[in-house]
Design a binder for these strands. Structure first.
Length: 588
RNA sequence: GCCCCCGUAGCUCAGAGGAUAGAGCAGAGGUUUCCUAAACCUUUGGCCGCAGGUUCAACUCCUGCCGGGGGUACCA
């Protein structure tokens, strides 16, 4: 609504002369550095240069026209234009903005920012995807947290997300596990702490492999036996898988993560042959050095291996098969692979093979899959500047991280709010929220150094800070006791601190869209920190006498107006946290 | 060698053509007769890796270099 008015104004002005249409202008609008200068600024330097005019002079003339147009027949306008140097600034009337925004939020509740843009189209999100028989380390946190959040974000935007946990439950490493277990394994030890025990075996295997190269060959044979359907080997594999899943599911429950399908790599075992044949028929596959490959050298990529010299398949084979299967099953609008950047080339290869297949089969555009495939990559989690590696054995278990964070949260509650009911539940919400937020608070492509002191910090830019702000807002609503109503006097929300909060609230729907478009929940996290901080400044704002200007006061109209704002902020923080997969306690 | 990502305050990170480069943590000082101080205010701290180029305007775009990380055919 406001943007439309802006477009009309600019288009109606002398900009027509230099063929800047309204859309063009709108794209160039930017928020001024100092919010006092207005809500939007339009830089005139470029236009002035084309016209050969002085930007300052031109700006003055333009502003005059704009303000006359804005006022029109009416006595006042909610838009005011100002010339500041070469920047044409627009001030939006705070009262109009407050009314529009708060009305919308109070009506919509947690649906504020939701849309039907997705038209229920399927978005396949492949995330988490841990390897069976390996510990769920903090390294898996990123994929799980980012993927889980994208799931919620796309659902909010009207898509039908399809969450798939592409478990690493097939491949050569199982040959290793099986050999290790047969040599050194003990069933009783396995039963007591399965993943930990398998992990120790795995580390031991790699250590002994260095001095005993025969182990590698033995492992290869064991995996081949699995692929050939050897029942005794498969029974062992199934046991590892069941025990691992039981532990992974504990983590998913804690994080509130949901999958629609837990179809791992083994799911594609009986589907790969047809795909390989299809690729051969298309003339893409060739034998090289005994292996079956798709040559990609003209794309400056290494060849994509479909089958090893011994006939066994590789993960690329399974991923290609997975893509084709998912396409047939879901006819997705997009398929996102939330996987670390170490697999950048792998996905380029796999996507390229799919693209080549489409070309070879001359599929119509509506049947083309490759433009819909996206690798949502993220950086490593390192520890003390070292890559964490299952093989090296320097993994930090995610459960351990959660346990420590929850214990600390509990400690803080006992110190600050010992009478709180349901302390265990709230401690879990805070502890897990802290860990998830710490992970989502870095732009995803950066490597992050796992730092206990950062994860276990509940102050500043953290999950608990947001939760605390939410608890404060909830507390205000409890104290207020009345229904929050939208028919308030919006002129009473006139302090700069309040206007700043309203601008944040107004932006929320755009922030959700932005997060979805770059596949990064961090956008929402950063936004929430800004909103919470803005609100806390309202909360602790001091009046002229140096006293805190309280939200709840004897002035009924003023209190009602402020509580409408409080309720709106609470709704947006609550919903924003929920999009990140973080719970928002009412009290803490 | 080739390809990809990252270099911004002591630390962790925002900013991705525009006005004086921002937060948090850590350091210094302050705010509570309590609407939850897990907060708020003040303050110290910057050749935005280096060098060129494009532009009215570059932390932002282009080229080269340096530093870190990753990938580079039978692991995932």
């Amino acid at each position: 609504m406001i943007s439309k008015a802006l477009e009309e104004l600019f288009a109606g002005s002398s900009f027509a002369e230099i063929s800047l249409d309204s859309k063009n202008i709108y794209r160039r609008l930017e928020p001024p550095k100092d919010p006092k200068m207005g809500n939007y600024a339009f830089p005139l330097f470029e236009a002035a240069k084309i016209l050969g005019k002085n930007p300052n002079e031109m700006n003055r003339q333009l502003t005059e026209i704009e303000n006359r147009l804005a006022r029109g027949e009416k006595e006042f306008s909610c838009l005011t234009f100002q010339a500041v140097g070469g920047f044409n600034n627009v001030l939006i009337d705070g009262v109009a903005l407050a009314q529009e925004t708060i009305h919308t939020i109070l009506n919509a509740g947690n649906d504020y920012g939701s849309s039907k843009d997705g038209q229920r189209k399927n978005i396949v999100i492949d995330f988490s995807s841990p390897n069976i028989a390996k510990p769920f380390g903090v390294g898996h946190l990123r994929s799980t947290a980012i993927g889980g959040s994208l799931y919620r974000i796309f659902r909010k935007l009207g898509y039908t997300p399809v969450g798939i946990n592409h478990l690493g439950d097939w491949g050569t490493q199982f040959g290793k596990m099986i050999v290790a277990y047969r040599r050194w394994g003990d069933d009783a030890a396995l039963r007591t702490n399965a993943v930990r025990y398998l992990y120790d075996l795995y580390v031991r295997f790699h250590k002994e492999e260095e001095t005993d190269p025969g182990l590698s060959e033995e492992a290869r044979q064991a995996f081949k036996a699995m692929e050939d359907g050897d029942s005794e080997t498969l029974a062992l594999w199934q046991k590892f898988k069941d025990l691992s899943m039981a532990e992974f599911n504990k983590v998913y429950d804690m994080m509130g993560v949901h999958f629609d399908y837990q179809t791992g790599e083994s799911f594609y075992n009986d589907k790969m042959e047809a795909v390989i044949e299809r690729l051969m028929k298309a003339g893409l596959a060739e034998v090289s050095e005994g292996a079956l490959v798709v040559d990609l050298s003209r794309f400056n990529l290494p060849a994509c291996l479909l089958r090893k010299a011994d006939g066994a398949t590789l993960y690329a084979t399974r991923d290609i098969t997975g893509i084709l299967y998912r396409w047939e099953t879901f006819h997705f609008e997009k398929a996102l692979y939330v996987v670390g950047s170490a697999q950048h080339d792998h996905f380029r290869q796999v996507f390229k093979v799919v693209e080549l297949l489409e070309e070879a089969e001359s599929l119509p555009p509506s049947e083309q899959i490759s433009p819909r495939l996206f690798h949502v990559e993220f950086g490593w989690i390192k520890f003390q500047d070292e890559v964490m590696s299952t093989r090296l054995g320097n993994i930090i278990f995610l459960e351990e991280v959660f346990a420590k964070a929850i214990a600390l949260a509990r400690e803080k509650i006992l110190e600050k709010n010992p009478d709180l009911k349901d302390i265990d539940r709230v401690a879990r919400q805070i502890g897990i929220g802290a860990v998830i937020f710490a992970d989502l608070s870095t732009r995803k492509e950066k490597d992050v150094n796992f730092d206990w002191s950062k994860v276990l910090n509940f102050e500043g830019e953290t999950g608990p800070y947001l939760q605390y702000t939410h608890a404060r807002l909830s507390s205000l609503l409890r104290h207020y006791g009345n229904m929050v109503k939208p028919d308030i006097d919006f002129r009473l929300l006139h302090h700069p601190e309040e206007e700043r909060v309203i601008e944040f609230l107004y932006r929320f729907p755009m922030v959700v869209v932005e997060a979805a478009s770059i596949y990064d929940p961090n956008v929402i996290g950063a936004y929430l920190l800004g909103l919470a901080s803005a609100f806390n400044k309202v909360y602790q704002r001091k009046d002229a006498s140096g006293r805190i200007d309280k939200i709840l006061s004897d002035d009924e109209a003023l209190t009602a107006a402020r509580m409408a704002l409080v309720s709106s902020v609470r709704t947006v923080i609550n919903e924003g946290l929920s999009l990140l997969g973080i719970e928002a306690p009412e009290e803490m």
